[in-house]
Write a protein that binds this DNA or RNA. Structure first.
Lengths: 179, 179, 179, 179
DNA sequence: AATGAATGAGTTTTCATTCAT
DNA sequence: CATGAATGAAAACTCATTCAT
């Protein structure tokens, strides 16, 4: 990966997050990256190819995070970490996840790309196992509900709409009898 | 409101929901509505003006639904109805809410329009009041959490990703001690 | 057909003939026609749509000419007119036939458009009938040969490579015993 | 001439014949030849330089064929060979002649390159001499006509439009009293 | 109220060509 | 000799919007 190639990716990520995928022209990306417009197409084939590259990077990153979560052996600690997961991930790279989510809804065809990617299933597996280990009465429904809650937290965090995240985590820890 | 005006709105809604706001051209709207392209601009000023009109209609519709919810006197029944609210609303007019959500994320300038609309606050008021009437320990946090859950349900339903909605409602009713 | 629409067609025809289809940009057509580039696409859908329109006009024109030829009752006169046909047609509208022939070879997909059009078969029918009426020994082969010769004359005339066309006609008239 | 140089020429010829000169990008040539795009320009200066090289090779090949024709001492045999000339030449190297003809009409600047090449004059010389030796009444016109016919045969053969070439040759041999 | 011809700025993409290594 | 990263000009096409009728 050349310096310019990396620059294109970084600027594209930033602009997609800022203005959305559709509202960002390849011309603008090239200009801000200090690069000829043609280079984007030489390296990524098309504007969508550029997006795909970004998405794949994001999915890989997310999978790494999930792997870390999976490595926590104690179930209670793992569930606690799960509740903190959205904020932990986003704080590491806010720009990345702003794009991921915004494009998910901006472009109908891309929704599926994300949904078919491995990490939804992997996340479900981890949470489900945790609830089973903790002998919750209805682990399947608990899993589904928590997935929804966590997805929702992702959204809110991305839009800077959750100032009291820590408080919410405590509240849920009580609900799940983790303290 | 003339017949053609109504037709434009209906077709625009349908196409925005189907293909997203950005990917729907005024030309296509005009063609499918059997109307000249100029007429759209005569009536709604701009493409965004057309969207605004649709958004306002959506907000009004949502407020109506919330008013119905608010009218339920018994707190337990009201909370039960609140849990069923997303599916009840969407089933009445699926296209409407698909647009609402898809444009919310597709077009950054429009996000605020939606967010500044009254109904989020109204919904929060209803739920908060309910939890207080039912003497929940921490009504504020309960409210915030349920808002997240319900928002998440909206998303999932719109993307046809919740087949077991009824089961989930029962599950939550138990959690909230409503049965 | 508006004035500007006609102007686009005329200029396009001229430029296609002058520089070839591929080397003529829609931008140049628009500029020389004193028209916005978008208008070309509004009216003809695409650059190829514009070409198609021109081709169809040409085919129609050619069919008319063939109909005139067909109307000649005396076989000898008809064969004489057939020999003069290429020059007669081209002299009526040299620009038209320069395009027709140049695009035929410039663009592989278009070759078929032309070949599938009616006039090749129609021409063959006329010539074949003539040779039969004149009791030529092998009318089929005579027809095929004359078709080749006439096609070749078209090419040469288009490239301004036949100054002695009249002499050639006399020469052939002798060969076919028409004088 | 290095191996890669030769490969570029062969692939270019093939692609020009298949898709036409304008529709073949240097990028595609480089890729299919397994060579860097830069190398094409190192060796041939420009895309047109590459074409020129091919054209010159073609002209040389054609001249060789004409020399062979010229070497036939018996006039009758020479005229017979002349009638068979188009098919004989094309069968030896169909791709070559497909390019020759397609670019001739696709790209106006190149038409002249071909036309100024010697072989048209040489062919004319051979045919003219033959008709004189055979004491045809009007050798000049006979020559011009046969040139047209042969040119036309070239075109038809290139487009795979003459299945009964052998029959046509016999037919002409009779016409020219060669059997 | 309604049309539809017309615009012009913008979009993604292609492509021959250059140049440092 | 050979590469491949990089360029920049041009290509076809789209689209929201205006305006005379």
């Amino acid at each position: 990966m050349t310096e310019k190639q990396r620059k294109i990716l970084d600027i594209a990520l930033e602009l997609f997050a800022q203005d959305g995928y559709n509202s960002t022209s390849t011309n603008k990306i090239a200009q801000e990256a200090g690069v000829s417009e043609g280079l984007i197409f030489k390296h990524f084939g098309s504007k969508e190819g550029l997006l795909d590259y970004l998405v794949e990077e994001g999915v890989a990153l997310m999978n790494e995070e999930l792997d870390n979560l999976m490595r926590i052996e104690n179930s209670v600690d793992r569930l606690k970490a799960t509740l903190r997961f959205p904020k932990a991930v986003i704080d590491k790279n806010p720009a990345y996840w702003k794009v991921q989510m915004s494009i998910k809804f901006a472009n109908h065809e891309i929704v599926e790309k994300y949904h078919n990617s491995s990490f939804m299933g992997k996340a479900m597996g981890i949470i489900s196992e945790t609830f089973e280990e903790l002998n919750f009465e209805n682990p399947q429904m608990e899993t589904q509900l928590l997935m929804q809650i966590i997805a929702s937290f992702f959204m809110s965090l991305i839009n800077d709409e959750m100032e009291n995240y820590a408080e919410m985590v405590s509240f849920l820890e009580k609900k799940y009898n983790l303290i």
